[in-house]
């Protein structure tokens, strides 16, 4: 999909015309942002129950008030050096949309940073790095106080690869 289109649809879903709010977090020194309306809650890191035969970046599942929520380590997802989980390590619980269904997932990040208002026009599409870096997960780049914030397209990110729900899996069962 065209990046501009994604931005447009992302903004349409927030229902705001003049910019959206993003929650930002730190990951290996970079600041990333996610649409704040998708954030369900922020909680500290707790032990998870690993799921067998899944990739390393899926840390496992936790019990979030009776719901089984999978936890994804974003560092490992991006192929970054994994970090020891410490007191600053937080899990951001997000609502991920796929078609018309929503799922709840958690992402492990280094630390939560801030909440920014970003005007639509200051959200720039990520440059195409060709095959070197996959920018599909990037909704756009925003500049706040001279620093770059990478706005993530979480629906795309958390429905890709091993996280994709295979409808066929049910049929084969």
């Amino acid at each position: 999909m065209d990046v501009a289109e994604q931005i447009a649809s992302g903004l349409a879903s927030t229902g705001e015309v003049d910019g959206s709010q993003f929650l930002t977090f730190l990951l290996a020194g970079e600041e990333y942002g996610v649409d704040i309306l998708r954030v369900q809650e922020i909680k500290g890191w707790n032990a998870v129950t690993p799921i067998p035969n899944t990739p390393e970046y899926i840390r496992g599942v936790i019990n979030l008030r009776g719901t089984i929520v999978p936890i994804v380590d974003l560092r490992r997802r991006f192929g970054l050096e994994p970090m020891e989980y410490g007191p600053m390590t937080v899990v951001i619980v997000l609502k991920v949309m796929r078609e018309d269904k929503s799922r709840v997932m958690g992402i492990v990040v280094d630390a939560v940073s801030d909440v920014y208002n970003v005007q639509d026009e200051s959200l720039k599409p990520a440059p195409d790095f060709g095959s070197v870096v996959n920018v599909d997960f990037v909704q756009g780049l925003a500049t706040v106080d001279e620093t770059m914030v990478i706005i993530l397209d979480i629906d795309h990110l958390l429905n890709s690869g091993e996280l994709a729900v295979m409808d066929s899996a049910i049929e084969h069962k």
Binding site: N53, G60, P70
Partner: peptide
């Protein structure tokens, strides 16, 4: 029985999950 598929997907060899008395998840 809690479904893993609600927020995740089907995992081979696992039919679901449950929450134990101490609040942790067991498969």
């Amino acid at each position: 029985i809690k479904s893993l598929e609600t927020n995740f997907k089907k995992v081979g060899g696992i039919s679901g999950a449950t929450i134990l008395g101490d609040g942790t998840v067991a498969l």
